[in-house]
Design a protein around this nucleic acid. Structure first.
Lengths: 106, 106
DNA sequence: TTAAACTAGTTTGTATTATAAACCAAAAGA
DNA sequence: TCTTTTGGTTTATAATACAAACTAGTTTAA
């Protein structure tokens, strides 16, 4: 029965904003804060919060530099664990959908 | 750019527990409360809350009967709007993933 | 026959969370 | 010099998921 599995998807990745962030990073490998904001359409505050959660989970690494020692410049890259996590997420979702289709046929 | 769209998925359906409920109902057309609970593995309270939200949105219809005028017996069925909503959801998700793949190739 | 336990749920409370508003330090512009 | 802009972070709020507690009735057991 696929529905229990569905009800217990990795919520850290499943949440739409973070799914967008992780998908973008899976494609880019790394991106700057403002670029990521543009890609996802999130507000800065919102993006910042979601990034913190993803970092805490070890899915991304955040690198803060200061251009000419002054202007903050934040680069985000996906970690191997993050890459695995999102690949696993899609795989699981596809699997669940496949099983659901089978289940429908009885 | 697919990521904005991803960050704005229909959250009412996207939420894992409700995605499970809607998927099960899409397959069954109708189901009893306890059967749905078994399928999804949710607690009664939790299931009850999610069902209320889905009903409020017009995605499901809840029918409460009393067996021999005594024992409550709740049947839930998916409405045409609900059916459309979940089909639309999967379609949109597939589309987003497809565009993401294209986007990766540049 | 009356208390205990079960059935089929609903309501209430709590803890988490997503989100935006307010904030900050530095730099650039007027 | 004062204001605005840049690149974010922190704080506050509003929504939400979730489970614990409850309800109203029924069956079982003593």
């Amino acid at each position: 029965m696929p529905f229990k599995e569905m009800a217990r998807l990795n919520k850290l990745i499943h949440e739409p904003a973070r799914l967008a962030i992780m998908s973008a990073l899976a494609a880019c490998t790394m991106a700057e804060f403002l670029f990521l904001q543009e890609l996802t359409g999130l507000t800065k505050g919102n993006l910042s919060c979601h990034l913190s959660k993803l970092e805490k989970a070890g899915y991304i690494a955040i690198d803060k530099k200061f251009v000419r020692k002054k202007i903050p410049h934040t680069t985000i890259r996906i970690t191997p664990e993050g890459k695995m996590a999102i690949e696993q997420y899609w795989k699981q979702l596809d699997h669940i959908r496949e099983v659901t289709k089978q289940w429908e046929k009885n």
